[in-house]
């Protein structure tokens, strides 16, 4: 059987809110090492890769590997019934066709359970090579959210260029043009308020803002986001979820017109 208990149930709620617009369905692959998900959007332009470690849960047990096919809008409906302070336990028998979610209030005086019907999903896993990136930028996740939201109101695509001067986001549209530059800034005392640019070589790539804006739905999960860029390769937008694991979004670049 599979059983995973997380005291901060809100994390699970935020996670599913971050994914459900982007991917309709996907398999929760559970094993003794934790829970993983790899799912592409319907146009195969971007991919969500989620990895939650077994030791990040208060309790984790998985007797045999399983792929649990999840419809994310449906999972979201159930998780909306959980309180923000609730502890959430996920449970499934081996080869089950349903996932049980149990919600316990913090003072244990309210316990509810819901069964989510599982789906059978054929999904091919993509092999994502480990690689060195030309530029890795860590910035406050709220800053990333603001930039992509602001630029989405101006244009459809953004040119992201990383140089030793900083990281620059540029767009243009019917309204006009917009440029936002963040400089390497380690002055703030709190690490989560710093902008750290680790540059091996300058790089500039163009991406669809609609997807970058969608990735920002993960902002409530983490104070810091990391962008990884390499010439002619997908961007990685990564949120570390405390000690539990990470969610990474990959987006293929646009070829310059």
């Amino acid at each position: 059987m599979f059983e995973a208990r997380i005291t901060q149930g809100a994390v699970l709620k935020k996670l599913v809110e971050a994914l459900k617009e982007l991917v309709t369905e996907g398999n929760f692959d559970v094993s003794s090492t934790g829970l993983q998900l790899q799912a592409m959007d319907s146009s195969h332009v971007c991919l969500v890769s989620l990895a939650l470690r077994e030791d990040g849960f208060e309790h984790f047990r998985c007797d045999r590997n399983m792929a649990m096919g999840i419809h994310f809008q449906n999972l979201s409906k159930i998780l909306k019934c959980a309180g923000n302070e609730d502890t959430i336990t996920l449970k499934a028998e081996d080869n089950a066709d349903q996932l049980t979610l149990m919600f316990e209030s913090s003072n244990q005086d309210r316990i509810s359970d819901f069964d989510l019907k599982l789906m059978s999903i054929e999904s091919e896993h993509l092999g994502i090579p480990d690689q060195e990136y030309s530029a890795e930028i860590k910035m406050p996740s709220s800053e990333y959210q603001r930039i992509v939201r602001d630029l989405t109101s101006i244009g459809d695509t953004v040119l992201i260029s990383a140089t030793k001067e900083g990281i620059k986001f540029s767009t243009s549209g019917d309204v006009g043009t917009a440029n936002v530059t963040l400089r390497h800034n380690t002055t703030p005392e709190k690490p989560e308020e710093q902008t750290i640019i680790d540059l091996k070589e300058p790089v500039a790539l163009t991406f669809a803002l609609r997807y970058l804006n969608n990735f920002a739905k993960a902002t409530p999960l983490a104070p810091v986001v990391k962008l990884s860029l390499t010439k002619d390769l997908p961007i990685v937008v990564e949120y570390q979820i405390g000690e539990l694991g990470a969610v990474k979004f990959y987006l293929a670049p646009k070829i310059d017109d």
């Binding site: 592409m40 146009s43 195969h44 896993h125 092999g127 669809a208 670049p253 070829i255």
Partner: peptide, 14 residues
């Protein structure tokens, strides 16, 4: 979007 590439052009099946 014109010029939008697919992820499958970069990452093969695992």
């Amino acid at each position: 979007l014109p010029g939008q590439q697919r992820l499958t052009s970069f990452f093969g099946a695992a």
